[in-house]
């Protein structure tokens, strides 16, 4: 359970993300998708309940949150690259400072990751010289560079122009195919259908239903889910 003041943002959430699986959170704005991800990445403290990572209760206040976050990769809606660091430094920062890898090793790995997303040539540039799509791809690489146990993606295409969404989703698709465990909040229903193993529908902070994408998106059980999906279809986003 998570509350901001008297407002209960999340309650009764029971969600498991199995290894090498992709779980997509869908739901209207304000339904608690981002809050759920922020709780999972320990950027918010839960008011009740547990978040388990590899079987360990990471919401226990005795657990060192910094050590937990080292095993997570988070990508934000607004990219949040560090504007005063070059692309390469953004990517190598956590591997060298947090994980104590050598600069040479971190650089090599960063270059390899950047070439995979076609941005090796931009390694020396600063984030403000990149398009939104390029920045978000770098942000994904920055999260991957720490070799996380799970990748948390928070509506990572919502701030992008429609024509740039594709390039970012292509990267996520490749990462998912590589076996990464992913929990993502998204408004891209078509993408969720293709990539996710499980789609979970959040409404008013409650997990109404979850299931395989074909079932949940094609034949939802709950009337609220049906209503939400029909609105999304009306908006032309499915």
């Amino acid at each position: 359970m998570k509350a901001f003041g008297p407002h209960r943002v999340l309650h009764g959430i029971d969600l498991a993300v199995d290894e090498h699986r992709v779980v997509a959170l869908i739901g209207a704005s304000g339904s608690g998708k981002s809050t759920l991800l922020r709780c999972a990445s320990l950027l918010e403290t839960v008011d009740d309940g547990q978040v388990l990572l590899d079987g360990e209760d990471v919401t226990d206040p005795r657990v060192d949150a910094d050590r937990v976050r080292r095993r997570l990769g988070v990508v934000f809606q607004a990219y949040n690259l560090f504007p005063h660091l070059s692309v390469l430094d953004n990517v190598t920062l956590a591997p060298t400072v947090v994980h104590g890898r050598s600069r040479a090793e971190a650089r090599e790995e960063a270059h390899a990751l950047l070439s995979r997303i076609g941005l090796a040539a931009k390694a020396g540039e600063y984030p403000d010289r990149l398009s939104g799509g390029q920045q978000q791809r770098v942000a994904i690489v920055r999260a991957l560079a720490v070799r996380p146990r799970v990748l948390l993606l928070d509506e990572i295409t919502s701030a992008l122009d429609p024509e740039l969404v594709g390039e970012v989703l292509a990267v996520v698709r490749e990462v998912a195919a590589g076996g990464m465990t992913i929990l993502m909040a998204t408004h891209e229903m078509g993408f969720a259908r293709q990539v996710a193993d499980t789609v979970a529908f959040l409404d008013g902070g409650v997990l109404l239903e979850s299931g395989p994408p074909a079932q949940l998106l094609g034949d939802p059980r709950h009337p609220r889910t049906r209503q939400f999906l029909s609105r999304v279809i009306d908006a032309g986003r499915l």
Partner: peptide, 19 residues
């Protein structure tokens, strides 16, 4: 959001401030 990004990479409060 800059702090959130740094902390979620596993940087400590001091590392976040400094870097």
């Amino acid at each position: 959001s800059q702090r959130a990004a740094a902390r979620s990479l596993g940087l400590t409060h001091r590392q976040t401030m400094r870097i």
